[in-house]
């Protein structure tokens, strides 16, 4: 493993670790907050009882354990996965606007899922993450290939434009399927906005192993992302096999994105927002950016999902709508500030 960052001073290490601990504490608080609120008002003591003295004959306990817990857990892993995926993409492509949604990965995963549901008549979730992953991988490769083959290579602009074009193409195909087939539109229209509701633990169990592989991979590869973020030449100078490492990172990104899409639909902008906020505080060392993105991404999505259920109670707002409403202004801000 090649470490490229400067050695940390003891105090920097201490601060960073402390920050991580604070992040964890915030995460736990958000998690508990998340499972304490919902359409039905429950006493906090009931929530605690449901967690520690579970009685499956009580419906209120079931609400906490069977409905809110899976949703909170899914928000947690999806938030972490998308943020880490975004962080890796931004590092590797040196593109501050990289986000799994903007670069066409999400529409690829969505198309694969729509095709699977419509034409194979797939109703089990077991293979959906894998199928979505293949869709995401294909569209990611396509976006990347197009952008790197363009004169000037994979610049922020070429990546974003090729992502927009490929998303537009895939969107047209999805529209045709929907217009011909009202049933698919009816059953998938909720999922296509990005939503955390209605998932059960079974689906999480199918996706979790993939996500763990992706997250562990990200942590292991993080030091070389720091190098790659400084440029391919400097990374190669540090003895990194650039092509191989980029391929490994791409696989991590795809796995993380695709399992997230399979679980929660195309939730936009999380992968864009969190890594930027993290970088504001942590600088450019990906050994810290990756774990921070994971923890704060998880807390962020938990928080957004709490809002999604509270703002119009007892009605819910689609979580994907809120992530876009919060995320898009940030994108605009970034363009104003970061793009010369």
């Amino acid at each position: 493993m090649t470490s490229t960052a400067q050695p940390h001073s003891a105090s920097k290490l201490a601060y960073s670790s402390l920050g991580l601990l604070i992040g964890l504490a915030v995460l736990i608080v958000f998690f508990v907050w998340h499972i304490s609120v919902g359409a039905k008002s429950l006493e906090f003591s009931t929530v605690l009882q449901a967690l520690f003295q579970y009685d499956d004959s009580q419906f209120s306990h079931m609400i906490v354990r069977e409905l809110r817990m899976p949703r909170a857990l899914i928000a947690l892993v999806v938030g972490a996965s998308l943020s880490v995926a975004g962080a890796l993409m931004q590092g590797v492509t040196r593109n501050p606007l990289a986000d799994p949604g903007l670069l066409g990965l999400m529409s690829g995963a969505a198309l694969a899922a729509v095709l699977a549901v419509t034409y194979i008549g797939m109703h089990t979730m077991a293979w959906l993450p894998l199928i979505a992953a293949m869709g995401a991988l294909l569209s990611a490769l396509l976006v990347w290939l197009v952008a790197s083959a363009a004169p000037g290579g994979a610049t922020p602009l070429s990546l974003t434009l090729s992502g927009a074009a490929i998303s537009g193409f895939i969107g047209a195909i999805i529209s045709i399927i929907h217009l011909l087939n009202q049933d698919t539109f009816e059953s998938l229209r909720g999922w296509l906005v990005g939503s955390l509701s209605g998932r059960d633990l079974q689906e999480l169990y199918w996706s979790l192993p993939w996500m763990i592989v992706g997250l562990v991979g990200a942590v292991v590869l993080a030091p070389s992302v720091t190098a790659l973020a400084m440029g391919d030449e400097s990374a190669a100078g540090l003895g990194i096999n650039v092509v191989k490492r980029k391929a490994q990172l791409l696989i991590c990104v795809v796995i993380l994105t695709a399992s997230s899409v399979a679980l929660a639909g195309p939730l936009g902008f999380i992968g864009l927002v969190i890594p930027h906020v993290v970088r504001m505080f942590m600088g450019s060392d990906y050994r810290w950016i990756v774990p921070y993105s994971a923890i704060f991404g998880a807390a962020y999505l938990l928080g957004i999902d709490v809002l999604a259920r509270l703002l119009m109670r007892p009605q819910e707002i689609a979580t994907g709508l809120l992530t876009a409403i919060v995320g898009a202004p940030l994108l605009i801000y970034l363009v104003r500030v970061r793009i010369k």
Binding site: R71, G190, W191, S197, G198, E316
Partner: peptide
């Protein structure tokens, strides 16, 4: 009292 209600597992509604 008689009523029609349908589960929506996609949105937990």
């Amino acid at each position: 009292s008689v009523a029609m209600a349908m589960p929506r597992p996609d949105s937990a509604e």
